[in-house]
Simulated assay, not measured.
Amino acid sequence: MKAATELDTMIPVTVLTGFLGAGKTTLLRRILTEYHGQRIAVIENEFGPENIDNDLLVQDSDEQIVELSNGCVCCTVRGDLIRTLNDLAARRADGGLAFDRVIIETTGMANPGPVCQTFFMDDDIADTYRLDAVITVVDAKHGMATLDRQEESQRQVGFADRLLISKKDLVNDADYQALRARLVRINPRASITPVHFGETDIEALLEVSGFDLDAILNIDPEFLESEDHDHHDHAHHGHHHDHGHDHDHDEDGHACGPGCGHDHHHAHHDDEIGAFVFRSNKAFDPERLEEFLGGIVQVYGPDLLRYKGILYLKGINRRMLFQGVHMMMGAEPGKPWLASEKPNTRMVFIGRKLPQDIFTQGLEQCLA
């Protein structure tokens, strides 16, 4: 993970993923044609022949990289993403191509995981490019059905730093809220914004800092609230106040299980991909925690999509920040705890069928 000073020279990268027909092409077409003052290299990451956008982007299939009238560049990857990224960086370094940032579009139902891992695994890439965020486009009208049918689409939601919902005007508010609630359960750390691709602010898509460790760990309050009322009531729920945004508990503080009269409008879809949060006001024993997280990543790495946390460690007067994608985990020291704040840990794990109780009990055993 890079120090802040190096970030200025790094080329930021946005991974754009999402449901077929949700409007990624419309968005890309705008990026590639309208004047927005940024020189962007768009990489179409192709897996196979089903690419529908070819006529739009690359007229001549022999030509790998096409320069466009608005200063953007477009290229289609038929082979290796790493090779393409290195090629683009080399052309940029020798003055052959000018671009400020990269957008990688993964086609259709591709899993964004391997694309993200590229930026942490390959040294040349990690020295040149900074992965800014994964943006997933969800179709409001067909989103529910796609999530039901395609586990890959759940994975795209789980990986996202930002979820853009298109076609909201085609559904009623109750359907939109149901979709939103489902997206929050799969991924409580991504911001969710309805968009009109005719007029989305392109700037707003480009500096998200989703992989920046120091970026705030935001967890959707709706998720925390449903978790507090959940019947998976673990011990760590007892001491999680002082977040600055307390949630309404029932008067008598009971955790309500199913059928307790609180309708949280979850017709629960049993999604394979989901999230949970671990919180504690007690400090972790650093060595035990490191050992436990190392073991968890070995065992559950393939099923972990994104995980991120702000950690309170014994004997260290500043917060530790950590995050991971699949098997790759990084940590670095963050800001000192202020005298006015109570140090606490907040971690969010997003993955496929993760055993919440194993994680929770394991983490509780790492508390000092």
Rank of each mutant, 00 (worst) to 15 (best):
M1Q: 09
P12V: 02
G21P: 04
K24T: 05
T25W: 06
L27F: 09
T33G: 11
E34W: 00
E34C: 04
G37V: 08
L57A: 14
L57G: 03
V58Y: 02
N70W: 03
V73F: 09
D80K: 11
T84S: 15
A98D: 12
T107D: 02
C116T: 14
L131E: 10
T136C: 12
V137P: 02
A140Q: 11
R155I: 15
R162S: 11
R162G: 03
A178R: 15
L179Q: 03
L183M: 09
V184L: 12
I186A: 05
R189E: 02
A190V: 04
S191W: 00
G198A: 06
E199A: 11
T200R: 05
T200A: 08
D214N: 13
I216A: 10
D228Y: 06
H234Q: 12
H240Y: 04
D242Y: 08
H245T: 14
G259P: 04
H262Y: 05
D271I: 00
D271T: 15
A283K: 11
F284R: 11
F284T: 12
E287H: 14
V297S: 06
Q298E: 15
D303T: 10
Y307K: 02
G309W: 03
G315V: 09
R319K: 15
G330S: 11
E332R: 10
E332Q: 12
L354V: 05
L354C: 01
T360D: 00
G362T: 05
A368R: 01
